[in-house]
């Protein structure tokens, strides 16, 4: 019961970060601030969702797999954000449609 409640609270909190990150991606004016918004969803949002799901895991192996997923997304997301930022720094922003 407590585990289920914790799961619901944590996953919902994670979803709030995802919603905020998505809103930022859509509304923020330039690449850097959009990246800044996205990292919130990747890092904290997914972290909270994973933490919530851990209470439903069947055993230590499942928990380790969940942590591994989070670490992998962190590594990949960080690298992708770095490359997007680097490209913008050297080549400027893409032609915007505004």
């Amino acid at each position: 019961m407590i585990a289920n409640t914790l799961t619901v609270i944590l996953v919902l909190a994670g979803l709030v970060f995802f919603a905020a990150g998505t809103a930022g991606l859509l509304r923020f004016p330039d690449v850097y601030s959009r990246l800044h918004a996205l990292t919130k969803a990747d890092n904290v949002g997914l972290g909270l969702v994973i933490l919530g799901l851990m209470f439903q895991a069947g055993g230590p192996a499942d928990i380790l797999k969940l942590i591994l997923i989070w670490v992998l997304v962190l590594a990949a997301g960080t690298t992708a954000a770095h490359m997007v930022a680097q490209r913008t720094w050297t080549h400027g922003e893409f032609e915007s449609d505004r």
Binding site: A75, M83, Q86
Partner: peptide, 14 residues
């Protein structure tokens, strides 16, 4: 060529 050491480093991990 990837600028900087980040991408090769991540690939070595991933």
């Amino acid at each position: 060529p990837a600028p900087g050491p980040i991408l090769p480093g991540t690939l070595r991990l991933l």
